[in-house]
Design a protein around this nucleic acid. Sequence first.
RNA 1: GCGCCCGUAGCUCAGCUGGAUAGAGCAACGCCCUUCUAAGGCGUUGGUCGAAGGUUCGAAUCCUUCCGGGUGCGCCA
Length: 580
Amino acid sequence: MNIKTILIEKANAAMGAAGIPEGSNPAVTQSTRPQFGDYQINGAMGAAKALKTNPRELAQKIIDNLDVSDIAEKTEIAGPGFINIHLKPEFLSNSLAAANQDQKLAVAEHSQPQKVVVDFSSPNLAKEMHVGHLRSTIIGDSVVRALEFRGDTVVRQNHMGDWGTQFGMLIAHLEDLLNQGIDLESVALADLETFYRDAKKRFDDEEGFADKARNYVVKLQSGDAHCEKLWRLFIDTSVKHSEEVYQRLNVTLTRNDIMAESAYNGELNTIISLLKDKNIAVEDQGAQVVFLDELANKDGEPSVFIVQKSGGGFLYATTDLAACDYRSNKLGADRILIFVDARQSLHFNQVELTARKAGLLRDETSYEFSPFGTMMGSDGKPFKTRTGGTVKLADLLEEAISRATDKLADRESGLSDTERAEIARKVGIGAVKYADLSKHRTSDYIFNWDSMLSFEGATAPYLQYAYTRVRSIFRKADIDSSALTATINIEQPQEKALAIKLLQLEEVLDLMISEATPHVLCGYLYELASLYMTFYEACPILKDDVASDVRDSRLVLCNLVANTLRTGLDLLGIEVMEQM
RNA sequence: GCGCCCGUAGCUCAGCUGGAUAGAGCAACGCCCUUCUAAGGCGUUGGUCGAAGGUUCGAAUCCUUCCGGGUGCGCCA
């Protein structure tokens, strides 16, 4: 159910019949003001310009051929050639009734499902997850959820960093600790940060340790059994840590979704041979380099992309090329979405250009590097601890829950301690996620505890509260909301505004999916909750003087609001509760 | 130096492929609880959309230049 799509189809047909060449944009949008109707077709003006005719006359021709009698009660031309559409209340009622009967709220599945590989989260297993991993993880997760909701086949890939140079250092350190008989679980790897720091210190300071570390990298990557055994011990612990964070975050990633860098190790030689055979990569200063004219500077000097180090070692460039091959050629992906920090834009640009030339990416595969901005502190600089250190993601989430607990403690609720703790968890985590997801993916944003947990404005708590307010009505009236089948009557302006908003879920999800931007869903849910609050104040439901048919109609609207909020928040990975 | 991103109300942010009077939230001020959860609602105040040109019937949006900020640019990931 997508009003906009319906109107676009109808507008296209009418524009064709009016003699406008195909491909002209009908420019359908929701109207900005009530007096302009509910939706509008703005394409007449653009088309008139191309045809050098009078836009108002052309708009009239379009209206003459426009068959919207099933959905609209009135169409009119306004201004220089806007076509305003006033939707029929019965159309809204019937559409809402259909949505109310449908588990998926009348959001249709894609007629031609795509196979979409989504690369997200991708922590470095040498260290604990930190705030820098938050955005990739939750943006990727919500896009994945939305894709699946629309019926696409998604392959989650957690491209974990488990194979870099630093692992030789970590293995060497681990081996020494084990030889000293130190217990692995409780001491050595209990705190990854400390472990990493100790290893790094020895790498920098201790005589001979660095050489040993480098030697271990080579041995590891060439399949040495002993090194691999130690490496596995380390990776297991590290993966366990990230799983705890995912669970805390309510993110759908599991161990099965791990497709780490090491997974491509066996393919790297083949990739380099291929690039050399095709003369895409050439030797330069001992390294294998791809020179990209597409990214040349003004002097014509091509961009440099190193795919193999002078000593023969591989880099993350090599791994990313192998990943292209795997995803496009082996998995047959229609789309590849990669959620990585914006600072890696050039790198992924180079990867795509090289992979396309080498046939590692099929033409049919859309390669979509979806960068995101940085989380900033209140000073406008990258978010750090007071002492300037990196903030661990686990710590951030615990603080969110603790702050939410304090907030909730101020309120009388009659709920048990366990219920309150559960609510605090959902509110705290939800607040962090919503604050992040509601910002445009590509922009840097300022992290602020007070505004995200303020329970006012566009926050997770506001949306969760709106949900509990709806649910409270059903609880109060002792009504099973799943059994509602009453006829919906759209009479009050607050009801109409709410009705149209409810019917825009599919439109919003499509935009979110095509652009990989969860913030549009965040904005939509806030608008929905806000319209519900207005409706709630203006339209009584359970009062004695409300006629039963009006009451029942409004109850269906309430149920749709609750289901849409719950579904939408679920697609963001944010949980709701019945009471708060 | 070159490339990419950004500059919208006091603050935090939207603004989709150019469309009607640039929108929210916070903050400030004023109303609304004997009434379905006031963690709410209604209203007021507040913007030369960084600057200057250009394209157009129409520009926050597209193009050019400049100013200001961020970020990246041969063997890290």
